[in-house]
């Protein structure tokens, strides 16, 4: 995006959820990596001050010198604090402070920071802390768009609804939704909320369906995004989310049931679909 004065203006997109543990950080890391793989200049920002996590998920924890609070308080310049990804030169991380209080950053400082970042990058992805307090409000303060991550569980969907209300009240426009950790087998048996159920309840635009996938565990263990793993269903789903974010029309694939060995063995009898 280009402003009339020729200044580059990237998109600031906050990833949030309300409930913790639904996959915000995994989504941010994979989406950031996917967008960079697709040719964008991307910075991912860990806005969870005091609970730094995005660095380990991306495998960059050993390279941190300065953090977001150092930049905001003027101890480091932005360029000094940005950490370049191991593989993708166009992907950077701005880590959260680990030792500071969650209130170490103000809303104005976050708006200023995202304003600086969008001049250098095409996509500024902000990993929001859980909750509906200051940390969350700071994380959406500078955002143009908000992505809400939920899982098909009652508590996560309820919290997502709260967050949608707050995002709309903050006039950030209608957020879009990633439904994470879908288990097609449970959905087919009627024992898990389907994506359609969640959409009917939350009534916002769908941008991603990510299946529950063991490869997320292994890729996180290694500190590598799942989008690199061609075997990873979740990785492919995140690549699709990135393409949709860039404006491509990407159909939502029908999720395949992941079968365990025993189930494959006994699969000839007993299991009913739909």
């Amino acid at each position: 995006m280009q402003r009339s004065n020729g200044e580059h203006m990237g998109r600031v997109i906050t990833i949030t959820s309300g409930k913790g543990g639904v996959g915000k950080t995994t989504t941010t890391a994979n989406l950031g990596t996917a967008l960079a793989l697709q040719g964008g200049r991307v910075v991912v920002v860990d806005a969870d001050i005091g609970l730094r996590n995005l660095d380990v998920v991306m495998g960059l924890e050993n390279r941190i010198v300065y953090d977001l609070v150092d930049v905001v308080e003027g101890r480091a310049r932005l360029r000094q604090a940005l950490i370049r990804d191991k593989r993708l030169p166009e992907l950077c991380l701005l880590p959260a402070a680990q030792t500071r209080d969650k209130d170490a950053v103000s809303r104005e400082q976050m708006i200023d920071l995202t304003g600086q970042l969008r001049r250098e990058f095409d996509f500024v992805l902000i990993d929001s802390p859980a909750g509906i307090e200051n940390g969350f409000r700071n994380a959406i303060a500078g955002a143009d768009e908000v992505i809400i991550v939920t899982t098909p569980e009652v508590s996560a969907v309820r919290d997502a609804d709260r967050i949608i209300g707050l995002v709309e009240a903050a006039e950030k426009g209608p957020p879009s939704l990633v439904v994470n950790r879908i288990k097609p087998r449970l959905v087919n048996r009627g024992e898990m909320l389907s994506v359609e159920d969640v959409l009917e309840l939350l009534a916002i635009t769908l941008i991603g369906i990510v299946p529950d996938d063991e490869t997320i565990v292994t890729s996180t263990n290694r500190g590598e995004a799942a989008v690199y793993d061609h075997q990873s269903q979740a990785g492919r789903a995140f690549l699709d989310v990135a393409r949709r974010l860039r404006g491509e029309e990407v159909p939502f694939p029908v999720l395949q049931e992941q079968q365990g060995m025993l189930e494959r063995f006994f699969g000839i009898f007993g299991r009913r679909r739909s």
Binding site: V154, E191, E200, G270, R272
Partner: peptide, 16 residues
């Protein structure tokens, strides 16, 4: 094999 018992997903949806 998971017959016609009230499925937990529809219960979850109603409650939500």
């Amino acid at each position: 094999f998971g017959g016609r018992r009230d499925r937990s997903a529809s219960l979850a949806k109603q409650r939500l």
